[in-house]
Write a protein that binds this DNA or RNA. Structure first.
Length: 123
RNA sequence: CCAGACGGCCGGAUGGCCGCUCCGCGGCGCUGGGAUCAACGCUGCGGGGAGGAAAGUCCGGGCUCCACGGAAACACGGUGCCGGUUAACGGCCGGCGGGGGCGACCCCAGGGAAAGUGCCACAGAAAGCAAACCGCCCACGCGCCUGCCGGAUGGCAGGCCCCAUGGGUAAGGGUGAAAGGGUGCGGUAAGGGCGCACCGCGCCGCCGGCAACGGGGGCGGCAUGGUAAACCCCACCGGGAGCAAGACCGAAUAGGGGCGGCAGGCUCCCCAUUGACGCCCCAAGGGGUGAACAGGGGGGCAAGCGGGUUUCCGGGCCGCCGCCCGGGUUGGUCGCGCGAGGCGUCCGGCGACGGGCGUCCCAGAGGAAUGGCCAUCCGCCGGCGUUGCCCCCUGGGCGCGCCGGCGACAGAACCCGGCUUACAGGCCGUCUGGCACC
């Protein structure tokens, strides 16, 4: 199991967005970036960093918080076991994030990881 | 039982699996070895962890910084019946006045319009200063009608539905949100506070009340239209900005300011009284001179500079070096939760509220924790069914069962007192008006 830490700085979010590697699903939008060229490169190699974004388009403060919490729970379940280490991931909430069934949301994230080449069988 | 008024309260519950954050206690880790403190990381156990509005950011305070001689005044902003309450308020409580409701009760931006200025759309004759469109009344006749006289375009008499002129009126008509008090009677040519009664208004006493105000009396024939959420006047209140306040720590790089690099000193090495070093002479070997003298060169020390302006001295400039100071980006720590605190109870007060006693410690994040998923129950809504009950019986209500959907408004960001706005559903109490029964 790899460690999952949060992504905090605006710079880091922009860096992930600038790679243009993204996948849009009904429940969420996924953006990824490998922060080391190849291999395990250094001490940060095992880290997966996750950033969550919920804009005002999603809804009020209550709705945005709920969307973020569901995405955080999802990331904990899926990314730790199925994403290859050494990458940054940004999950963006959409309008349906709070109402979509959790299993479907999970499906969205998993196919997104496969499409972007980050999928890994359970370790 | 139905309809309604007011006040208070709750605002999903339980369990399972997996997490977050803070606090307390314990364990482990941190490279030569051992011991140990703090912090940090990981981990185990125990405990705390959103709201009545956390919202809007509309008022009032605490706290912090800035400004300032206590302050006062101008400007600007706010408040505006009276009394109380409070740390304070534009809040709240109790009264007063006006309006609405059968009633419980509800609503009111409720100071001043004889200080001044402005405005009063449309309509209307006229919107502030008294005027007069229709009408009403009187007079007059140069108008008209009737009758008589006369040859006559004339004279005489009478009359006013229609006409002109002069005068009196403001009751009636019509306009308007508003038309110079209202209703009635008398009076009058017609009318009019012209006179009278009542109401209203103004002024002056009296009584009740702390007061707003209320009650009653006398006088005045009525003067002063409305608008101050128009300017304004009066009274009272307000210094400004805000936790991104503010305090502390503060790396690399770049940049800012100040001082020094002057004199003098200490120390080490080399040369030197058999004369170093500088200058002068030379036959190139040396000699003279400073020498009536003891120093010279180099390095180091908080010691020591270099460039360039023709040169020297001084000064300035640029650069370098050394030391010191201040600002400050990312970041970190504090501010930061024992408080105008919650709950219970007693006392004072109609009440807002105040006081005493007891008891409790109750969120503290920072891309922002306080949750994610599942199950059962609960509540509400819709549909279908019903061998149940009721009614005003093609139907409806209540109850029960099944299926499906939904779970209001909304997320602390320094704290507190209010206000405003949003809100599925539900509970409790007091009161009002009906209906039924005793």
């Amino acid at each position: 199991m790899v460690t999952v830490t949060p992504l905090k700085k605006r710079r880091e979010f922009l860096a992930v967005a600038s790679t243009r590697k993204k996948w849009a699903a009904p429940g969420l939008v996924l953006q990824v970036r490998r922060h080391f060229a190849d291999g395990d490169a250094g001490m940060n190699g095992g880290l997966i960093r996750v950033g969550l974004t919920a804009s005002k388009k999603v809804g009020s403060a209550v709705v945005r918080n709920r969307a973020r919490r569901r995405l955080r729970a999802l990331a904990r379940q899926v990314l730790a076991n199925h994403a290859i280490p050494g990458c940054d991931v940004v999950l963006i909430a959409r309008a349906d994030t709070t109402t979509r069934p959790f299993a479907s949301l999970r499906q969205d994230l998993e196919t997104g990881l496969r499409r972007l080449g980050l999928w890994k069988l359970e370790s």
